[in-house]
Computed example of a mutant assay.
Amino acid sequence: MSEAMQRMMPEPAEFQSACDYGACVEVAITEVVAVRDSKAGQDGPVLWFSRSEWEAFVAAVKAGRFSVG
């Protein structure tokens, strides 16, 4: 994890990888949620979400609100 990312994360976190047909993302959850493309590596761009934003997104995915595929 880059030094800049370490400063943004309120506590240490490890990224967990999720892959589907070769498309992978990595997610680290602490007080905030960081999401990155695994192909970009540790210093690639990161999307930041609050916990409530992330939980709303996950709930929407589980409810089938997105058309995937």
Rank of each mutant, 00 (worst) to 15 (best):
D37M: 03
V58L: 11
C24T: 00
E31C: 12
F57I: 07
K39F: 01
L47F: 05
T30D: 09
V25I: 15
A60I: 07
D43H: 14
A28V: 10
A34M: 09
A40K: 14
Y21Q: 15
R36C: 01
Q42C: 10
A59N: 12
Y21N: 15
F57S: 04
L47Q: 08
T30L: 06
V27Q: 03
A60T: 09
V27Y: 06
V61F: 03
S38F: 03
V32M: 06
D43I: 11
D37I: 01
E26D: 09
S52P: 10
I29K: 12
C24I: 02
S38M: 09
A59Y: 01
A59D: 09
D37A: 03
D43L: 13
T30I: 04
S38L: 05
E53I: 06
V35M: 02
E53N: 08
G44R: 12
K62P: 04
A56T: 07
E55G: 11
K62V: 05
V35Q: 03
A34K: 00
K39W: 08
E31S: 15
V46K: 09
S50W: 05
G41A: 03
G22K: 12
I29C: 12
W54I: 02
E26V: 01
A28N: 09
E26Q: 11
A40V: 07
V58Y: 04
P45D: 15
L47M: 13
P45K: 14
A60F: 02
E55L: 15
T30Q: 12
C24S: 04
G44I: 12
G22T: 09
T30Y: 06
